[in-house]
Structures are given as C-alpha cells and as structure tokens.
Amino acid sequence: MQEEIFVSGRHLPKIDPNLEIWHWEISLYLFLGGLAAGILFFTALFYLLKKENEMQATVKYATIIAPIALIVGLAALFFDLSHKLYFWQLYTTVRITSPMSWGAWVLLIITPLSILWVFSYYRETYPKLEAKLQTFKRLKFLNTFEKFLIKNRKTMAIALIPLSLILGIYTGILLSAFNARPLWNNSILGPLFLTSGLSTGAAAILLFTKSHFERTLISKIDLALIFIELALIVHMFMGMYAGSQVQLEAMQILIGGSYTVMFFVFVIILGLIVPFVLELTEILGFKVPIIAPAMLILIGGLIFRIVMVNAGQLTRYLY
C-alpha cells in the first residue's frame, strides 16, 4: 500500500495531475510536423547550395511528403480540439511568448508554401499529370503560375529555411512550456525534437533517392543527427538526475517505469542505434537495404513522441 500526503486540493488522483488530455492525435501531429520540417529544411538547403541536379530526390521528389504530412497533422490536431469552431481565434493575435501562437502562424505560412514548392516541379516530377492538365484549355493559366513559382524558387527556399527550423523546434518547445509537467519542463526538448525531425526527414528522403551520391551524403548527415540526438537524450537524463526529487521521479518513468521498454527498446535501440549501425555499414561499402534503417528511424521517431507525450502527462509536482 502506497501512502501519499496531499498538500493541496489539486493533487487528487484521477483529477490532477493524472488528467490525461493529450492522446494519439497530438503525438501524430508532433511527428508529422517534425518530419515535414526536416524534409523542407534539406530541400531548401540543397537548392540554395545549387545541388538540385545531384540531389533530385531531396529537392524534387521527397517534397511531396511535406504538404501531405502537414495536412494530416493539422487534421489530427483539429480532431483533438474540444471547441473546433473557435480555432480561428488563434489568428486574431500574435503572442511572442506563446509557443502555440508561434506554431499556428508558422503552420499557416509553411503549409501553402510547401504545396507551392511541389507544384513548381510538377511538370518534371509528374509528366503524366502535366499532360492531362494540358488537355483542359481552361487550366492553361497554370503554366503562367508555374513560371512565376519557378522564378521565385530561391525566395521560397530562403523563407523555408527559418520556417522549417522554427516548426521543428516548436514541436519540442510546445511541451517544454508546460511547467506543471516535470518530464517536459526542460530546455533540451526543443533541440531534441528539432534534431529528431531532421533525422526523420533525412530518413524519408532516403526512401526516394536512387542516386548513390545522394544516398551516401544523406546517410552521413543522418549519422551525425543520430549521434547528436543520442547526446541530447543523455544530456536530458543527466540534467534530470542532477535535479530535484520531482525530476528524479519523472525520470523513473523512462528508466525503470512503465515506459522503459518502449523508450529504450523501440526508440534508443531500434530507432537510433540499429539504424546508425546499418547506415554506417552502408557507407563503409557493405550492401544494406536502405529501407531498413529509414523505416526504423521513422517508426522510432513516432514512438519517441508517443512516449514523451503520454509519459509526460503522468509526471507531477507533489513537493
């Protein structure tokens, strides 16, 4: 039998702080937002570096994932809302100190921008669709619009760099802003979620590329991102270990608690270490099906967000 001393009326079991109001929709939204941010960052970066021909999957083909991920993620977020008819009120003000306000405005800009980027390459990437569109005389204005987008690709790429970085780091800051949840309330989540999003974006690009040069370069970048992600996770645990009793108890959920297996087996081992070894093996010259590390990173990234969202809601302040 476990005995607890309630120091206020807020600490009642099943009411607060055990109230779980964020479910799978939020985890999916955070994952898809980070995935889109990672893809769009590499797309814009290599375009500005004039690597469009060498990195065709990065700049042209994999970008189709970004708008789809953003739309599905926003749909999941909308589905989670309790008062769905009032979502527009987020856009009646700008609050610099609110991560949710930052996220709402960035999503409002980056979602249509990602669609426009894909459309600017539709003639090259989807020639059959382009041929069908030309059969409709009324749609000839698309040619003029496409020329306008092609002319302004550099401007879009310059805008996508900061927007994608803000989107990626916002998914972590959104959680860390909740001071009432000790597991979330640390400064590492922002950089950690950004790094994880960039890694999942790189993994998605690997599924599209057929170029050995592109696959090797993206794999090397992903190796560095995985290493940084592991270092940030270690740093997060070290910070919590050196913290207060509340933070120590929050850490126990991931180390020796109900989410230990999910976190260490599916995130750390299968989602980071195993893909790291497989990609390193590929770079060293051994044949490895690229789909294996890519899918492991994507699945690990999703499970990581599920664990952090669910486990974070179980942590509490009692002292």
Rank of each mutant, 00 (worst) to 15 (best):
L81C: 13
Q56D: 08
I96G: 11
I71P: 07
K51A: 05
F79E: 02
Y86I: 15
K84I: 13
I96V: 15
L70H: 03
W88A: 14
A62V: 11
F79V: 14
V59R: 01
I96P: 08
L74N: 08
A76L: 08
K50I: 09
Q56H: 08
T92C: 13
Q56P: 08
V72P: 04
V94R: 05
T97I: 15
Y61E: 09
S98R: 00
V59L: 04
D80Q: 04
L90K: 01
V72N: 04
P67M: 02
V59H: 02
T93L: 07
K60W: 00
F79G: 12
I96L: 15
A62N: 07
A62T: 11
V59T: 10
T93K: 09
A62R: 02
K50E: 10
I68F: 00
H83L: 13
I64H: 04
Y61F: 01
I65Y: 00
H83P: 02
V94E: 00
A69S: 12
R95S: 14
Y61D: 12
L90A: 13
S82Q: 10
R95Y: 03
A76K: 03
N53Y: 03
H83M: 12
R95A: 15
A66I: 09
H83I: 15
S98M: 05
I96R: 03
F78N: 10
P67K: 06
K60T: 12
T97L: 14
N53G: 13
I68Q: 00
A57V: 09
V94G: 11
P67W: 01
V72Q: 03
T92A: 13
Y61T: 15
V72M: 06
I68M: 09
K51D: 00
R95F: 04
L81N: 13
L70P: 10
P67E: 00
Q89M: 12
A62D: 06
A66C: 09
T97G: 11
Y86A: 15
K51W: 01
I71C: 10
W88L: 14
W88H: 06
Y91R: 01
F79I: 14
F79K: 14
H83G: 12
T58W: 03
E54N: 05
E52A: 12
Y91A: 10
A69D: 06
G73A: 06
T97C: 11
S82M: 09
S98P: 05
T92G: 15
